[in-house]
Design a protein around this nucleic acid. Sequence first.
DNA 1: TCTGGGGTCCTAGGACCC
DNA 2: TCTGGGGTCCTAGGACCC
Length: 428
Amino acid sequence: MQENSSNKIYALVDCNAFFCSCEILFRPDLVGQPVGVLSNNDGCFVSRTKELKRLGVKMGQPYFKVKDLCEKNGVTVFSSNFSLYTNMSDRVMETLSEFTPNLEVYSVDEAFLDLSGFENHNINDYVKKIKTVVEKNTGIPVSIGVGPTKTLAKVANNLAKKSEKSQGIINVLEPRLRDVALKRTKIEDVWGIGKASSAKMKSLGIHNAFDFKDFKNDKLIQKIFTKVGLQRKEELSGCPRFELETRPKKKKQIMCSRTFSQGVFDIESLREGVAHYVSTASEKLRKQDSVCSSVEVFTRTSPFKNVSQYYGFDQRVILSGTSDTRKIIKYAFQALNKLFKAGFEYKKAGVRLTKITDKNQTQMSLFETPDSGDSERLMRAIDFINRKEGPETIKVAACGLKDKAIKLNRNFRSPRYVSGWNQIKKVL
DNA sequence: TCTGGGGTCCTAGGACCC
DNA sequence: TCTGGGGTCCTAGGACCC
């Protein structure tokens, strides 16, 4: 295979310890300190500063297991504050979009930029400028990896985050530098190679990204790791196989689920939860102008607790696609009635909307009336008010008023600096 | 006491049709 | 009684990502 067969240039911009960085923005006293952000219910670590990583706290580690360690070492922990993070994410992406229209927002803290057309020697200055401007405009530190494919930009980015002397930027457009970078990248750190695949890779004698790139038997790779596995390999040798996706795609499924702060036994509490999750999910559905014709509901006991276990699941088909919260709740409740078994201590429940289609292409059903104009206007009004006045200003009565059982633990929540008017920081 | 939440893509295999 | 093959569509499950 020919290397550098294309002249594509991709940059991956990744925010460093993003959720932590957002929190630290409003707590400058914490710069350089061990800081972590916890998942819902203050369950696991989902973001860690490098000072916290150095203490040995792992991604996804339950907080209660390292609580002592944290207290001894003066670690500051925060409950997650997603409205802050999405708000900061929007600002970062907006700043990036000033540098190129060819931007793919890959996740809340990452974006790919297509910088094809730049001369190699100018690229470094340009990405340095990107880094400086993002940090100046938003206060969020970023790392940037540059390469001829998205997978190589990822490789470069990972190394940039680890290496002190790179100052947060690594460019592997040069083939010689690239081989060094590939040799330093463990196979399990390659984008798209997870636990299962890396174990198989090792049994083939592939231990780092360079071994993988150099592996001679493409047919075998395709057979074991499927089409995408082979595409990864080709990307590592400099041939682009994954294109930039600049337009956000419509979701094909929309999920909403939560772990409860305390176990619940009664179906009434589960109903409140399910009604809640449907409300959230169907709002997202309407936001992308879609309807769904299937709703799935599940609930489960805690797999970590020594109690009798149960996983209940049921799916309901909605004959005429809908995005009306009330209608979806009706079907979700049918599902819940079907799957609920008394006597179990439930710890989590969730809802998934599937068979999603464009609202203008809905199929007519003989047996069910489609959403009326009234329904659409009502939903639009609710969404408008909730966006303007805050989430759940208006909600369906089935969500309950007290939300007693399904409340989340958020003991370390920071003030809502940018998302609540009454909590804005005063500058005097 | 205490263990997150939300997605995508691929493949195999069954159902169904001719 | 038993027997063919090919195509399409759908779904479940696995693997992976952040």
